[in-house]
Design a protein around this nucleic acid. Structure first.
Lengths: 120, 120
DNA sequence: TAATGATATAAGCATATACTTATAAATATA
DNA sequence: TATATTTATAAGTATATGCTTATATCATTA
């Protein structure tokens, strides 16, 4: 989820779209004119942003009006800071990694799992 | 700069490295053991993270000890929220886009630059 | 000095990504 | 109904990315 959002943000065209939508909601052809790039290019990037949840869209006739999900964006930034400060044991996805951390405490590198580190 | 950092964060292996380094500094072979993945894979991802400034490294003998740049990480999350709230005219890189925004104010889409929108 | 250990880098490969042009689909208008 | 307009999607292509295996580099130790 962090991954999807950061990946969506890690591209210059999409960052620009995000910033423009922070000013006001815009339809695809607005973005096309403001950014001076092709319509399919806008559409394709919007697809990524919508998939990540960062952009919402509303249909108005033939136009699709896009708006920035500022709440998600701000929450993500806050929650990622919390995630970084969270103890490893509270992150189920990293249970395996957590169980292997004690093995390297203050030790030199030359030790293989199963020798001086037993996982039970 | 946001782009580089978000791109570095938008990948699962690197996200995991970041989280592990948030617990304590680790050398490459520590990460290799904890994450159970190949050494070149770690090295290559660390290169991306170091380039983004998210990971610092210190040489200790033959080992290179990696640590998380928490300050940069937290500042980035905060500054991105500020960036999103900042008026467009304060962002020099988007001067062109800013100059084209008035054209679309409350207007329908069917207008081409140079007709009802003059940029001076 | 030879052997070992830790890390970086190179080469090769498969997949993903960002773009272009062309076209489809859907709504609006003449 | 035919044409415009807006958006989405498909196909093709070039480049980027993430991985593997193999090797190079450099520090350590025997």
């Amino acid at each position: 989820m962090f991954e999807t959002i950061f990946k969506a943000l890690g591209e210059p065209t999409r960052l620009k779209i995000i910033k423009l939508l922070s000013i006001k909601e815009l339809c695809v052809c607005d973005l096309e004119e403001i950014m001076q790039i092709s319509q399919p290019r806008i559409s394709q990037h919007l697809k990524v942003l919508k998939y990540a949840g960062l952009v919402n869209e509303r249909k108005e006739g033939q136009r699709s009006i896009c708006s920035l999900n500022k709440v998600l964006l701000n929450n993500t930034m806050d929650e990622f800071q919390e995630y970084i400060d969270k103890p490893l044991e509270e992150i189920p996805e990293l249970a395996g990694e957590h169980s292997r951390i004690p093995c390297i405490d203050g030790e030199a590198c030359k030790r293989k799992l199963g020798t001086n580190c037993k996982i039970e």
